[in-house]
Nucleic acid binder design. Structure first.
Lengths: 136, 136
DNA sequence: ATTCTTCTTTAGAATAATTATAAAAAACTC
DNA sequence: GAGTTTTTTATAATTATTCTAAAGAAGAAT
């Protein structure tokens, strides 16, 4: 199965028609070995470099949001001027090198189980994420 | 010792002259029993309500940033369109109710110790923060 | 294949948070 | 009080993100 078929499946699952532009976005997003941390701007620039045709910024935003909603991308909670996303959607944590503005994955084993001993009536836990900020 | 003296000390420590506006900001920020989670906009509106004189938005930004730099305020890492701050600068964690956009403190005992089993050469850990997102 | 309908793309405008600017005002020093 | 430095403030500039509406592409029906 070619990766293109995978991309089309992902797009269809996200209620998006498989267009040229969206498949190009998928190439840059998902055609990699390692997990990929990015901002919309990173992604936009990579697409400009790697592919022939242009994709508009609006399309990148739309597609990333649809993938995020569907669970093919994860949003990483850090305070930065830009929003970071991650292609690794499994439950895991991050280092954030503040100086270099760089994100590094932390495996669950690297952090150990986190037990939340408090609960809020009427609410349930959606996610538990650890952010470890690094300095020199 | 009046709280005003405390405010002046905090301002001086942050390399800020104690002006009327800054003391008003301090009143709203630090003159409370419980920890206070806020965005710049929250703070700006509260100042408008609680105090007679106006304080400009730019002054609120400047003062909050100086306090943050000095360690009198903590920035809370969540993905939101606005940046959240916390007057509780001790090491602690948060619930974030995504629907209501509300932050709730988690004591360290509510989470337990977090051991980071991985390290990055040349870098040391600055902070470890847990964000627990809540849904209905 | 052709037509028709619905979704997409796109450039540019609109919005919103934050930062920068520069002149008037207040704080500090002597 | 005179002179110097820092602040305040309104406003402009910047930046990330969202919105818009017209032109184009995809899918369905014939």
């Amino acid at each position: 199965m070619t990766s293109k078929q995978e991309f089309i499946k992902k797009l269809r699952n996200s209620n998006l028609r498989p267009t040229k532009q969206r498949i190009n976005i998928c190439e840059v997003l998902f055609n990699r070995d390692k997990t990929f941390h990015f901002t919309i701007n990173d992604l936009f620039n990579l697409i400009k470099d790697k592919t022939e045709e242009k994709v508009s910024l609006a399309t990148v935003y739309n597609t990333v949001h649809a993938f995020h909603k569907k669970g093919y991308l994860k949003e990483i909670p850090i305070n930065s001027n830009q929003t970071y996303f991650d292609t690794n959607v499994t439950d895991h944590h991050h280092f954030f090198d503040v100086k270099e503005e760089r994100l590094i994955d932390l495996k669950n084993e690297d952090v150990g189980p986190i037990e939340i001993q408090k609960s809020i009536p009427g609410k349930k836990i959606k996610s538990v994420e650890v952010l470890v900020k690094l300095e020199d």
